[in-house]
Amino acid sequence: MDKRSPHREIWFRPLLVWIGLCALLAATCALAYVPLGEANFPISLCIAALKAALVGMVFMRLFENNALNRLAAAAGPIWVFVMFLLMGADYFTR
């Protein structure tokens, strides 16, 4: 086996994700100055969600984790979605 393979294993995937995160940071910062009207805010939020998903899946190892931890991690976004749904139902129907 290649002697360097443990190092490659350790660094490769996180490094790719870090490069991706930096690229997304540059993209979201640049796009914030492009006048897209109402679309600026949702676009920046979508990029943030993508960055958070990358950190969760690779850095926090949800990708390679067991189902129990994935279920626990999914509870967060699910309940946040329910909270925003109920809040929106009240706010937009007044």
Binding site: T28, N40, F41, A48, A52
Partner: peptide, 14 residues
């Protein structure tokens, strides 16, 4: 990562 767009990117294009 979530705080960054809602606090620092708001209103830049306006």
């Amino acid at each position: 990562i979530v705080l960054y767009p809602i606090l620092y990117l708001v209103g830049r294009a306006h």
